[in-house]
Design a protein around this nucleic acid. Sequence first.
DNA 1: TCCGCTGAAGTTACATGTAGATAGGTATTG
DNA 2: CAATACCTATCTACATGTAACTTCAGCGGA
Lengths: 217, 217
Amino acid sequence: MTVASDPRVTDRVHQELRDRIFAGDLPAGARLSVPALAERLGVSRSPVREAIVRLVHERLAREEPRRGAVVADVSLKSLIAIYEVREVLEGLATRLAVENAGRRLLRTLEEVLGEHERAVSAVDLTAASEADMTFHRLIREAADNAEVVRMLDDVQTQVRLAMRTTQVTGGPKLAIADHRAIVRAMEAGDPAAAEGAARAHIARLRAVLAGQAGGPR
Amino acid sequence: MTVASDPRVTDRVHQELRDRIFAGDLPAGARLSVPALAERLGVSRSPVREAIVRLVHERLAREEPRRGAVVADVSLKSLIAIYEVREVLEGLATRLAVENAGRRLLRTLEEVLGEHERAVSAVDLTAASEADMTFHRLIREAADNAEVVRMLDDVQTQVRLAMRTTQVTGGPKLAIADHRAIVRAMEAGDPAAAEGAARAHIARLRAVLAGQAGGPR
DNA sequence: TCCGCTGAAGTTACATGTAGATAGGTATTG
DNA sequence: CAATACCTATCTACATGTAACTTCAGCGGA
């Protein structure tokens, strides 16, 4: 009998490369040489090749035929485009969450919001960012729509990649106010208002990014 | 010197398998055996394996570790979920198109709309469907947002896959009326109205699908 | 100094080898 | 006759072989 968790080498390599990219260990533009990585990781070239194909597909790497793959970067321009998409997807997720979810979710969201406030007051950047991500994750899971979850995961991957070079903080206090407005609309059981509040939240973050585009140089 | 078009075997195999899936030649649930396909296509196993990895990533196939891949299916439930996402993405694309595009696009859209009407009057299903797709493609290309284009392409892939088993026609005449309303809002230069009209169009199609869910059996 | 050539090193892309897992049919047992 | 054990064909996943291509450093000529 085989154990339930029988991770394939390919999966491990893929995860390892993802981690290294997000850690900044493999910076944007770094070449992903299959033989070199295979030796470094102590595996053969096949699983490395397959892992790279996956990275290319999730756009953590770019590939040119016969030239190999390099770690991708995210320009500020495309980050703004990503936030335009994120705006409508978070809006959708929030509307669906209102239509599907009950008391239980709202209570959990309030707890996370409390945790978020505490973290911001204590100037604990890590905890604040984590509470922020948890807030959004709870909502999109409550949407009960696998497509929107997948696409927002995709968006988040690109945002994480961009994070290494661009700052996306749009004022911690304002984020909490936005989140509070979202929860209020959800509690009122008003799907359209909830969608609007979620969209406004992301639109505001996008405006911050757009400000950076013309601003500092 | 090498020719500019030097398609890799992997690319050809990938395209070939995509075509066969959409043609219904490889029906949902069909096993994608790497050695069998390699022999059938007269290539080695490596490019076949890589093509299958790509199919899995674009969700034309599903894979279970150590069991291989099979051609994916799309349930009516997930097709509806896909249309929920499509609704907000087409809305976004249309709003952005209004903000970016000029006379030129509007003229082209009117032409396509005319072609669409002609095809519907002549009961030419193929031409009508093509005009329909062209209409939406023009708008999303005009949005000038690579992310929304990518995601709508993704949506369209799933819709095409679903087409083989589910009918998505929501009344050809109504489709034209919807498209006309979209163009009107675009001509008025009203981004919010254009977004609303596009969303209403897709929402109506989704309602048709939802009707099928409970209806015929 | 600048340009183009050349050859070596490294890499990609495809092909092939193979251990161990899986599925499905056949025999065997209660 | 049903359930179970076994057996074989096939496959997956990883490893490895190799021709052709890309890159780039170093050299020679304008």
